[in-house]
Amino acid sequence: MNAHVPRLSIVIPAYNVAEYIVPAVVSALDQSFSDLEVIVVDDGSTDDTPALLAKLSEERQDERLRIVRQPNGGLSAARNTGIREARGEYIGFLDGDDLWRPDKAERHVAAMDCDPGIGLTYSASEFIEEDGQLTHRILRPDTLNPSLHEMILRNHVGNGSTPVVRRDCFEVAGFFREDLRSCEDYEMWCRILWLTDAVAIGLPLPLTFYRLRKSSLSFDVDRFVAQADLALEIIQSSMREVPRRLIVRARSEHYRIAARKAVIAGKTDKARSLLAHAFRLRPLMFLTDLRAIAAFVSLAVPEAGLRKVENFILFLRARRA
């Protein structure tokens, strides 16, 4: 008798996330949609991650949970291993320090079942503090049906714990690039929209809890900028029909995003330098882009003030919509 093939595979890359990995895995196993498997790829962790995973596996005795251990190869390599191990029609991703809301899998699968043309779904996220406390701050997608050009301008998928992808997309577009150590997901989503006929659809509900960690790659501003530039070089060289002006706009947008990260990390001088780069590439963005205006204002206010500025910007955007 053949083993049951699950509809959904949830891939959890994990590297030295002992403090967070058990809640992450439990959030995946305890979904309201149960026809799934959870594949944890331990990417050569040197902390207690392997021991905690082994203990959880023993306690849960859940045949849907599989743990794969490999030498450290980076986030893309861990995700790619998970894709190769996955059996589901759909493949979702959950970083080892984030959480899925209990109904996330159910909502994504229902949306994709309704339309075989949907290859990529993603959702809004709620930020949580490093200790897991709710912040009640929501990261919502700018658009719920981005074109290739809109995805090049900005990674509308948001973070690495929101997407669920149809397996066929990886079979056509390939896997995550392992030479990218950041922005690998951004390049992957652009490549799927470029090489396949699939569309991307966003779900407006915050179905993912994104943990704010000061030690995460997101706060390594220099790495983010270098990898974003490299990802855009890859996109420009492979998608030659994409207008050069779009690449320039995308580069300025990445510098703006990096500037905001620098402000949060307390690197004011770095933020000023990045905003200057963005201005040189696209001067009008500071007159037409509310986020760019917020980034400029943030240099003169502390982080608490920055939150108020951003909330006001979100209010203005909602009124305009």
Rank of each mutant, 00 (worst) to 15 (best):
P163M: 08
V164K: 02
V165I: 15
R167L: 01
R167G: 03
R167P: 09
R167F: 07
D168C: 05
F170S: 03
E171M: 12
G174Q: 09
G174Y: 03
F176N: 03
F176V: 03
C183G: 00
E184H: 13
E184G: 07
Y186D: 07
M188G: 09
C190K: 00
C190V: 14
R191E: 09
I192Q: 03
L193R: 11
W194D: 15
A198G: 05
A198R: 13
A200G: 10
A200S: 03
P204S: 11
T208H: 11
T208M: 05
Y210S: 11
Y210N: 12
Y210V: 12
R213H: 04
K214A: 09
S216Q: 11
L217D: 05
S218A: 07
D220Y: 02
D222S: 07
R223A: 06
A226W: 04
A226K: 12
Q227R: 03
A228M: 04
D229V: 12
A231P: 11
L232A: 03
E233M: 14
I235D: 04
I235E: 01
S237W: 01
M239N: 08
M239P: 08
M239Q: 12
E241A: 08
V242K: 01
V242S: 08
P243N: 10
R244Q: 14
L246A: 00
I247V: 13
V248M: 08
V248F: 01
A250R: 03
A250I: 01
H254S: 06
I257Y: 11
I257Q: 10
K261P: 09
V263P: 06
I264W: 01
A265P: 02
A265K: 02
K267G: 00
T268M: 00
T268R: 08
T268L: 06
K270P: 02
R272V: 04
R272N: 00
S273V: 00
R280E: 14
R282E: 15
R282I: 06
L284Q: 13
M285L: 10
M285S: 12
M285A: 11
F286L: 02
L287Q: 14
L287A: 08
D289V: 10
L290G: 10
I293D: 01
A295N: 13
S298E: 12
